[in-house]
Every structure is written in C-alpha cells, then in structure tokens.
C-alpha cells in the first residue's frame, strides 16, 4: 500500500500526519470526510467530547496538513470494497461512539469501511515492537546486607513475573523458564562481597569479580590465554567479562572482544566489577537493599 498526496476521489481512504501518528478518514466529497474522532484542531481538543464518527469538510479534516490518499496495487485492489459500499458503510456509522485508542480507533474505522476488515497497522506495529523488545535488568546487592537468595527471588518476580522457588525450584547459576511462549532467562554470580543477577527474555550471562581476589598471579593463570595481557583492575574486568560470556567453557578460551558484553563497577565500598553478556541494547541496573530495588545506574 502506498500513500500519496493527490486529488482525492470518492471513497478514498485518506490520512493526515499528527505528530508521529496518522489520523484516518473516508473521503466522500470536498464537503464530506467521515472519520472516527475529531481533527487535531484546538476547538475540538478544548471541548473534550467523547470521540464520535463525524463528517467534516476536507479543510477541517486536513487541519492545515497534507492529505494523503491510499493507492493500491492491482492485487490490493481486489481486496477493497466497492466505492458505494465504502461510502454507505461510513455514513451508516455517523454518530457512533465507543472509541478506543487501541481497539477501535480512526484507522480501524477507515479500514473497516474501505476493506471490510477492522485493523490498525499503527497498533500492530507498536504491539510487535513491544513484544519483540529485548529486556535486560541487572540487580546487585551487598551480601552483608541482603542474601543472594532474597535478591534472586525479588529480581525473578519483578523482571520475569516468576515465583522462583515455586516455578523453577532453583537458587543459583544460569537457567531459563518458558511460560505462555515467553522466555525468562536468568543468570547469577557472586563474590564474597557482592551478588548479582541478570534477567532477560533472551540468553544472558553475568559475571562478577572482586578486585584483589583471587590475587593477580593466580587470576592470570586461570583466565589469560597465550596472547592476553592485563594488569590491575583491568585484569579483574577481564575476569568478569569472561565469566559472563563463558557459558560453561574454560575461561582461558573465552573471547571477550565480541559485542554484547557490558562492564560496570559497583559502588566503591563493594570493590566489585560486573559484566553482562546479552543481546539487549538497553540495560537497567538496580541495587537491591532491604527487600526492594532502586535504579542505581544506567549504562
């Protein structure tokens, strides 16, 4: 389907852009454009009336914006209703209410008159966007104040909607859970001071390293491949990155140069560094304290 600014013909589906969405109607004549809801003009907005199906002239409909008409391909034309039926349907609904932003909006109305099918592409696009988003929440806590178990339970419930002990019967490590076709992936890790958990709807790995533990020489032997060199804090950052990407492999062989791993330090008093390996672009970081979490940082 293609939208073009041209002279409108009787029975055309028309639209104008209002901000980042479109307002739709059915063109009958210059004096009659039938729409569900009102044009984006102050006199309508100020009234605050419940939206109804109404007819206005083309200038009122356009509200000073460019009117686009729907152009169909040969195949698409077979799907549209005859012009007279489109007009008849639109007119028969004048005065009708029951507007709903999601389920019964101006686009649903126009499509129903034009194709005989009630649908909104704007709604479908947004729904797909919501359902396909990759989520990633990371929680960390000071183990002298909260237990890893409590944090894990809170994180799984808050970000995954899961009762971790009832639904999954697990308490640490990396695991996944599927409910109603939706995946919840959880990864946990801890040091002596700090514990962290990542919750995502895609595979995720988390690694936590504590500065100075184990000592640098031991750590180098444990994680550094033949050509890897790192010293001081950078070595511990590398350690956490390798742990997050390890997936059960030997740390020496884990490459951390691939995209998707993000590393951040915990508050100074915890002396830990956390890395998360995931597909998510957005990462929210929460610190967990006294049975609740607050957003502590954004990477």
């Amino acid at each position: 389907m293609k939208w073009t600014p041209r002279d409108c013909a009787k029975g055309d589906m028309v639209r104008i852009q209002t901000g980042s969405v479109f307002h739709y109607g059915i063109f009958v004549s210059e004096d009659e454009v039938i729409q569900f809801g009102y044009p984006p003009l102050p006199e309508y907005a100020d009234k605050n009336d419940p939206p109804l199906v109404c007819a206005v002239d083309i200038d009122t409909f356009s509200s000073g914006r460019v009117v686009q008409c729907l152009d169909l391909s040969r195949a698409e034309r077979k799907k549209r209703l005859p012009v007279e039926q489109t007009v008849k349907t639109a007119r028969s609904r004048l005065g009708e209410g029951g507007y709903n932003l999601l389920h019964n909006n101006c686009e649903h109305f126009a499509n129903e008159c034009y194709f005989g099918v009630k649908r909104s592409e704007q709604e479908e696009t947004m729904r797909k966007k919501w359902q396909s988003r990759v989520t990633l929440d990371v929680y960390f806590t000071d183990l002298s104040k909260n237990s890893e178990k409590d944090m894990l339970e809170y994180a799984a419930r808050r970000s995954g909607g899961l009762d971790i002990y009832r639904d999954m019967n697990v308490s640490s490590g990396s695991f996944t859970y599927e409910a109603d076709g939706k995946w919840v992936c959880i990864s946990t890790d801890k040091t002596a001071r700090c514990a962290a958990v990542a919750v995502s709807n895609k595979p995720v790995g988390i690694g936590v390293a504590q500065y100075g533990s184990p000592d640098e020489n031991t750590l180098k032997k444990l994680i550094c491949g033949l050509f890897e060199r790192a010293e001081g804090r950078e070595l511990y950052r590398l350690y956490s990155r390798k742990k997050s990407a390890a997936g059960g492999r030997r740390l020496k062989s884990v490459k951390t140069s691939k995209p998707g791993i993000r590393t951040f330090d915990t508050p100074e008093e915890l002396g830990c560094v956390i890395s998360v390996c995931s597909e998510a672009e957005e990462l929210r970081v929460f610190s967990y304290e006294n049975g609740a979490a607050s957003i502590s940082d954004r990477i």
Partner: peptide, 27 residues
C-alpha cells in the same frame, strides 16, 4: 508523544492483563 502513548497503552494491557476502555491520547 502519541506514538509513545500507543506503545505504553499496549504495554500496560499486556503487563497488567487489563483492557483500556474509552481511552484517547489525552485521557
């Protein structure tokens, strides 16, 4: 924006398992 609002309403319906009635952008 109106697009954010549409996204938000969808997200709320799916997250809380409710259905919005009589909702417009300016509700």
């Amino acid at each position: 924006t109106s697009v954010n609002m549409l996204y938000t309403v969808i997200a709320i319906e799916e997250t809380f398992d409710i259905r919005f009635d009589d909702v417009t952008v300016s509700s």
